[in-house]
C-alpha cells in the first residue's frame, strides 16, 4: 500500500512526508476495506448501467457567439507570479 500511496501522490502532485505515507496508507486500507464490501457483498449485474450523472437528458448548447474576454490585468490579477501579460512558471525543460 505504501508504494501505491507514493505512486498516487506523485500522480496527484502532492509531496508527502514518510509519516504521511504511513498514516495515509493505514487510513486508506481502512477506507478501502470498507469500500470493498461493494465487491464482496453485492453482485452487480453487467446490464446495470453506470450512472455518471443524475440526469442523462438534454444538453444545453451555447450558440457560437463571441462574448467579451477579461482584460488581461484582471485575468492576471490573482497570479502568484507574472511577467508582463504572461503567467510565469519555473522553466520547463522539453528536451
Amino acid at each position: 500500500m505504501e508504494d501505491k500511496v507514493r505512486y498516487v501522490a506523485r500522480l496527484a502532485r502532492i509531496k508527502l512526508t514518510d509519516e504521511e505515507v504511513t498514516l495515509f496508507s493505514r487510513q486508506l486500507d481502512g477506507i478501502l476495506g470498507y469500500v470493498d464490501k461493494l465487491n464482496q457483498k453485492l453482485d452487480v449485474q453487467n446490464r446495470t448501467l453506470p450512472m455518471s450523472h443524475p440526469h442523462e437528458a438534454s444538453n444545453s448548447f451555447r450558440a457560437d457567439e463571441v462574448k467579451p474576454s477579461l482584460p488581461p490585468e484582471k485575468a492576471l490579477s490573482n497570479a502568484p507570479q507574472k511577467k508582463g501579460d504572461f503567467f510565469k512558471v519555473p522553466r520547463i525543460i522539453e528536451e
Binding site: P68, S69, L70, P71, F87
Partner: peptide, 8 residues
C-alpha cells in the same frame, strides 16, 4: 496580446 482572449 498575451492572455487577452481569456475568461474565467
Amino acid at each position: 496580446a498575451p492572455n487577452s482572449h481569456t475568461c474565467p
